[in-house]
Design a protein around this nucleic acid. Structure first.
Lengths: 349, 349
DNA sequence: TGGTTTTACAAAATCGATTGCGTCAATCGT
DNA sequence: ACGATTGACGCAATCGATTTTGTAAAACCA
């Protein structure tokens, strides 16, 4: 079992030997946290050490530093699912801020399962992450309170939880915007496609949607909890069309499921938006492609704020939950007078 | 500056004190690599130690283990861009295999810039990653050879490089498939939308496309190197329409840019596919949504294989580059007789 | 000039876990 | 019955860096 990881990395000890000083001095000079290295050694010594570091190709051993200082300069991000557009965008934002602060963001997927979440969370704590960001908070189970009691620093992103600091979209308003728009274009038989109700992204959006509808004096919408992907959208659409009267206004709280539903409606010969209007969520490239009316929120910004809040917390500053603004982007899936291919959102690549 | 990371984690020392044995014994019993703990202690001792570990809530300190063993059970993944569908899917595959092997995958974006790539790569080596996976290989610059000489274990994914082990799509065949299809439906004025030519995903696809066209005796295609996102696709389309004759067959080697081009063509009143046929790449949800003919390759599988090869390498097994099969999924953007919303690909969420 | 402070650096402890080398007693084989 | 093996464990070194403590020499003050 050859443990040889390439040629051995040079250590401070070697630099010390080369220059003829102690490792203590080397450490002080090379310590990036040290604002004034010259307090500790003469100018020549400092120069000699730095020179030696360069010629030897010295690099800090991040593990050793962390072990000693209990500071890993790492934040862990738990997401229900990697490979998903929403999560990928959020993580990109987190990652961006992380490196702006000389930190590293590491991620792991939990598949939204409590067991895996605990496991991954512990694995990250084993690496002494400075803090955690959860994108998969459930509103019922409260594993997070345990963590809080243990003094673990964390924030939530995307989904919120009343007891913890989070950065989320204004889901209540989003629900109202979607409902209002459907009402304004004269729809009365409404339906929602969503996922399990244990996440705030479902509950809040449904809540806002229903509130608006109730205040307009309309019938409450049908709620189809099929899921967040294309297939889930199709399934929901099939269910809707099992027996008339069919809905004439659908809000899928995710563009992918909107796409699935849309394709089914079209296959069945329904006209969108005349027969059935559809609204999505996230204003993703999919929405641009199919001219889908959608709710826009900056996922990138959501990711950024979630880690900025976490870093503030780590600095001991007081932090509060934030709610990001949302806006309705109207396109042809609810308004056939709109131009084709209008209003593309933020471009990432 | 309170360095208090919550309540101090229990250590082997504490367990040792509690049970009344040395840390050595505790370490041997609790070491997960140790196949037969009973070789080192009596059954009672083993039980007592395990019991103490549980009651104290003991967890391994991954950093300390790595420092000692020079094995971090971590692989680093360098991607040109997080937040991109392609990269997110690949990473999801990598992450899956990583945890199947009790490892952790950490990622960082390089924005395709050599400087950042080196920086991130070093940052990962500082954490003593067991190996690296590069999704952003350039074919000209050869930073990777330096790494190889240093004995750093790595594989490439998505993009390939003749000198290194990689897992990529059969881009040459993909190019041929796209060209053949366009030729078969009678197109003669062809164009490609791609990105810089320093990546194999561009060069190979173009190569295959051009080979097929040459062998068919047609004119070589126009090559528009505008980029990989929606805006790039629009830009390319605008350029194409600057002066007639316009292309009647376009291959965007990425669905997003295909979408951008498509929307421009439609805005200009062109009929797709009658006036201009469009093919994309990756068969992403965007393609499903707009009924875009596209090239399918399993990105998830690509990710999985890239880390599996890396792990094989780490085990000292010989590994060779792999090329994943591709297939053409024909939809309405090249064949108006196809049904709406057909053949959805692998669903991820 | 005697005493205090600052400078410049070193020695050693520490972080948490692993591991080579021993020790001591019980057991085994012949 | 005696050397040899095995079982059950501990000591101390080690990984690479940081931190605490220590101590000469130089600088400063009155």
């Amino acid at each position: 079992m050859p443990t040889n990881r390439g040629p051995a990395r040079p250590t401070q000890r070697q630099i010390a030997a080369l220059v003829g000083v102690s490792v203590t001095t080397v450490s002080r000079i090379l310590n990036p946290e040290e604002s004034n290295p010259f307090r500790w050694a003469s100018e020549e010594t400092v120069e000699a050490i730095r020179q030696a570091a360069v010629t030897l190709g010295y690099r800090h051993n991040a593990l050793a530093v962390s072990l000693r200082t209990s500071r890993s300069h790492t934040v862990g991000v738990l997401m229900p699912l990697l490979g998903d557009h929403v999560m990928a965008m959020i993580f990109a934002g987190i990652d961006e801020v992380a490196r702006e602060h000389g930190m590293m963001a590491i991620t792991a997927s939990t598949l939204d399962e409590p067991t895996i979440r605990v496991e991954r969370s512990l694995a990250m704590q084993d690496r002494l992450v400075d803090g955690l960001i959860f994108a998969d908070a459930h509103i019922d189970k409260d594993y997070l309170s345990t963590l809080k009691d243990q003094g673990v620093a964390f924030t939530l992103v995307h989904r919120r939880h009343p007891n913890h600091v989070s950065v989320s979209a204004d889901d209540l308003l989003a629900g109202r915007l979607a409902a209002r728009h459907l009402i304004e274009i004269g729809r009365t038989r409404l339906a929602i496609i969503c996922r399990h109700r244990y996440m705030s992204t479902s509950t809040d959006r449904i809540q806002g949607f229903c509130d608006e509808i109730r205040e307009a004096g309309l019938e409450p919408p049908a709620v189809l909890e099929t899921g967040f992907n294309v297939v889930a959208g199709r399934d929901a659409a099939y269910m809707m069309m099992e027996h008339p009267p069919y809905p004439d206004g659908v809000w899928a709280i995710n563009d992918a499921s909107a796409l699935g539903a849309l394709s089914v409606f079209r296959q069945r010969g329904l006209n969108v938006p005349d027969d059935v209007a559809i609204i999505g969520f996230y204003d993703s490239p999919v929405a641009w492609g199919i001219d889908l009316t959608s709710i826009r929120v900056s996922l990138h910004q959501m990711g950024r704020r979630s880690i900025e809040l976490l870093l503030d917390r780590l600095d001991g500053k007081p932090v509060e939950s934030e709610i990001l603004p949302v806006s309705l982007i109207v396109r042809r899936s609810t308004d056939s007078t709109r131009p084709i291919g209008s209003d593309l959102g933020e471009v990432v690549s």
